[in-house]
Write a protein that binds this DNA or RNA. Structure first.
Length: 824
RNA sequence: GCCGGGAUGGCGGAAUUGGUAGACGCACGGGACUCAAAAUCCCGCGUUGGCAACAACGUGGGGGUUCGAUUCCCCCUCCCGGCACCA
């Protein structure tokens, strides 16, 4: 029996289920149940991503402890999930805030620390100077702390980092193996990792020893560099500010506001000259050094060479500061237009005619527009670049890199946009970082036999800082190395740490002596992962990273954690994501209370395809409920006439089928095929449902109650119960019991379409004249192309277009579909 | 700002590989049943013109490729998601 590990992203226990959960877990349950019917050994587990910021906020607000709040939420949400009728194996339930779970990530942390894959460095955080706390990006609103209202500052503090960049290449390359992932998610991850081929360029600093190093992906534009810009945090900025109070003020100003890249990138461009100059490595020219807020310290070298003619941001900044711009690239488009124009002008035709042609006009206009651009990032041929003139991008890249290298002022370099992952959080409700700080021995990882480092749960949240940072009974300890007095690390881990390996823990949920054991190698990788598109980059990248880390410490064998990925769209309300913070949630409990789980599930699956966002509207639920009532009624009316065997062509004593019944059986078996394909391949649950609705509408039109009709009706109803059972399991189980009292739906397998029932003798052709629909034609399946053309040309709705002076130019016959007569 | 995605009737959506645009459902209108209402059942339902047959237009906007474009290409607008400390 092949295995099928179907995993839905586990919920954060926020209090109550929201519509996104209902959507997510119904999709997972439908796929699980479908695969069980297809004969797979299915695992569908569930757990709780239980650490996180909201628990701390709720604890402060409700004067309780985050642990108590979290465990109560888990209890309530578990009840709700059970109401949904999910086929979840609750024996495997895990909660990430339990020591049994986080013990193992602490263990992995110490292993990785010893391997050098976790290290410490300073990093910038949002600092609330009034509350004296670090703020999450979410807690910074318009540059101010959400509670204090104080202007937020950037502050550097020491933090632990994971060397995800050491795996950048593998994380990038292995995306190519993920055929079961949506292309858009792979593209986003590729761009996030951001491998680029570029060049280091060093600019000697005038009047000082040392060079300013920058990284560029466009060394071909080097001769167009007119200034260099450094980030406010750059060492050169700090140096210049020592003797320049105005600059120091400016740098301080740049340090206001949040660290979020979206805020930095959308901020108004600001800058100030440092008064320092650097020497252009090739031309020897002196270029001014600016401090600019649009240069990110975290990417590349925290400094850029600025080429206003060929970079949008440099262009905007240069315009604002009236800095020079030198065009050094003639874009390919411009060359192309020039060539087209020259061809036209030099053609042997009458020059006057050419002058009048609209083509020449539009070419000239396009060329003027291209030449008039202040800035273009398009690649092309080098100009105004001295000895490099005439080179194309790649030639210029190679030659300039070689020249720089010869001078010792640069070289080619491959660069990733991906940065190492900062995992320290200055918060309480998270997994304690298992490090002990010893004055003598430095940072000592907690030995395995002293794990877990248990987070005290009975705490009082006062709103300012983490309780364990003020609790000597937590942080006072002895050094495992020298036995002297030492202190524990009081930062906790990023909650993405927990969610990066839970998929493996489900397979060995009760293991006391290993993070994951052998059982993981049976279940992994996850066959189908289902979750929100908002996790397309961070969570999914971190989970892929952890999978590789666990592989490299010998815990598991697979390279990638998730073979197939279904990213469900958001459930929106009033045009934006349903979230507690926006206060636009719709409580699914009311839906379940009023209509029951089956209707709720049916409606969620019917309302939109799973990968698209779903704008919530209350209307429509009624339609799902009505359909189930009709189905119920049809089945009971049928059953009330007595038991009957489903139609089979071999059944003795059954009359010849009428064309009506033949068509119904044709539709039934087409539907069986389509629904199976919709569930298994297309994940298109909405169209699966609508095709079953169509089948039921067709069945309703048949009123006869003779034995043959009843046997076909039995065949239809029996199969409909099977087809819908992954979506509406409760009702289908009850109906199946009535329809087939001798068997049970839980043991039923997925139906197979009967090929004989699907044979069609004639085909409905669509007849078009010049691409427009003019009629339909029923043609025998065996008709030749010539016969089809002949019949088509005999139709009145075709001949009436054959006016005087026109003729049939072409007839296009698409087999089994359509005929298009081209008349001109 | 950068990366990814989306836009189709009054609404949610369908059209699977370039081949009948609007399946299925909601809402709405009309009718049947009923003392009445609800429920249920039947009929209609893109826009414009027309009694109708039918015709023209129509998939965010503008261009292009094609016998044929919701689908492919180029440009633009708006909306959604992500941007490394929300999860």
């Amino acid at each position: 029996k092949p295995k099928y590990y179907c995993l839905s992203m586990f919920p954060y226990p926020s209090g109550r289920l929201h519509m996104g959960h209902v959507r997510n877990y119904t999709i997972g349950d439908v796929l699980s149940r479908f695969h069980k019917m297809k004969g797979y050994n299915v695992m569908q587990p569930m757990g709780w991503d239980a650490f996180g910021l909201p628990a701390e906020n709720a604890a402060i607000k409700n004067n309780t402890a985050p642990a108590k709040w979290t465990y109560e939420n888990i209890e309530h949400m578990k009840t709700q999930l059970k109401q949904l009728g999910l086929g979840v194996d609750w024996a495997r339930e895990i909660a990430t805030c339990t020591p049994e779970y986080y013990k193992w990530e602490q263990w992995l942390f110490t292993e990785l620390f010893k391997k050098g894959l976790i290290y410490k460095k300073t990093a910038t955080v949002n600092w609330d100077p009034v509350d004296g706390t670090v703020l999450a990006n979410e807690q910074v609103i318009d540059g101010r702390g959400w509670r204090s209202g104080a202007l937020v500052e950037k502050r550097d503090i020491p933090q632990y980092f994971m060397k995800i960049t050491a795996y950048a290449e593998e994380l990038l390359n292995d995306l190519d193996k993920l055929d079961g992932w949506p292309e858009q998610v792979k593209t986003m991850q590729r761009n996030w990792i951001g491998k680029s081929y570029g060049c280091e360029v060093e600019f000697p600093i005038v009047g000082q020893n040392g060079n300013l190093k920058v990284y560029t992906t466009r060394p071909d534009t080097l001769m167009g560099a007119t200034y260099v810009a450094v980030a406010a945090e750059h060492a050169l900025a700090t140096l210049a500010a020592q003797s320049n109070p105005e600059l120091a003020d400016f740098i301080a100003e740049c340090k206001r506001g949040s660290v979020a890249e979206a805020d930095v990138a959308t901020a108004e461009k600001k800058g100030m000259a440092t008064g320092l100059f650097v020497t252009h490595p090739l031309s020897g020219e002196q270029l001014p050094v600016w401090v600019a807020n649009y240069v990110l310290m975290a990417y590349g070298e925290g400094a850029v060479m600025a080429v206003p003619a060929h970079d949008e941001r440099d262009s905007e900044f240069a315009f604002q500061k009236s800095l020079r711009s030198i065009k050094v690239i003639k874009p390919a488009t411009e060359t192309n237009l020039e060539e087209q124009l020259a061809d036209l002008e030099n053609s042997p035709q009458d020059p006057e005619l050419i002058e009048k042609s609209p083509l020449i006009d539009s070419l000239r206009r396009d060329l003027d527009a291209t030449r008039a651009q202040h800035c273009t990032t398009e690649k092309g041929t080098l100009i105004n670049s001295g000895k490099y003139d005439g080179f194309n991008f790649q030639e210029a890249f190679d030659v300039i890199a070689a020249d720089l290298e010869a001078k010792g002022l640069g070289q080619k370099r491959t660069q990733y946009r991906l940065r190492d992952w900062g995992i320290s959080r200055q918060r309480y409700w998270g997994c304690p970082i298992p490090i002990i700080h010893c004055a003598k021995c430095g940072e000592v990882p907690v030995p395995a036999n002293q794990l877990p480092v248990v987070l005290p749960e009975d705490v009082v949240m006062d709103g300012v800082g983490s309780p364990i940072k003020k609790d000597p009974s937590f942080y006072e300890t002895t050094c495992p190395s020298c036995g002297g007095k030492a202190t524990r690390e009081t930062d906790t881990l990023d909650t993405f740490f927990e969610s990066s390996w839970y998929f493996a823990r489900y397979a060995s949920f009760d293991s006391n002596n290993a993070m994951v054991d052998k059982r993981a190698n049976y279940w992994l990788p996850v066959d189908q992962y289902v979750g929100g598109i908002e996790h397309a980059i961070l969570h999914l990248l971190y989970a892929r990273f952890f999978n590789k880390l666990m592989r490299d410490v010998g815990l598991i064998k697979n390279d990638e954690p998730f073979t197939n990925l279904l990213t469900q769209g958001m459930v929106l309300k009033d045009g934006s994501k349903m979230s507690k913070s926006k206060g636009n949630t719709v409580d699914p409990q009311a839906l379940i209370d009023q209509y029951g789980a089956d209707t709720a599930r049916l409606f969620m699956m019917f309302a939109a395809p799973p990968d698209q966002s779903l704008e919530w509207a209350d209307s429509g639920v009624e339609g799902a409920s009505r359909f189930l009532k009709r189905l119920w009624k049809a089945a009971y009316e049928h059953v009330s006439l007595g038991e009957i065997k489903a139609y089979a062509s071999s059944n003795p004593g059954r009359g010849e089928l009428t064309s009506e019944l033949k068509n119904l059986r044709l539709q039934l078996h087409q539907t069986i095929e389509k629904v199976g394909d919709d569930y298994g391949r297309r994940h298109s649950f909405n169209t699966a449902i609508s095709s079953v609705m169509e089948l039921m509408n067709a069945l309703a039109k048949i009123e006869a109650t003779d034995v043959t009709t009843r046997s076909v009706r039995q065949e239809v109803l029996q199969n409909v119960a099977l087809l819908l059972s992954p979506i509406v399991p409760h009702i289908c189980q009850a109906l199946y019991m009535e329809l087939c009292p001798a068997s049970h739906i839980l043991h039923a397998s997925w139906p197979e379409a009967n090929k004989d029932a699907m044979v069609q003798d004639t085909i409905e052709y669509v007849i078009q004249v010049n691409g427009k629909l003019r009629g339909n034609l029923t043609i025998s399946r065996e008709a030749s192309k010539e016969a089809i053309e002949k019949m088509t040309l005999e139709q009145v709705y075709v001949t009436k277009f054959l006016l005087e002076g026109t003729s049939v130019r072409k007839i296009i016959v698409v087999p089994n579909k359509l005929v298009n007569v081209v008349i001109a």
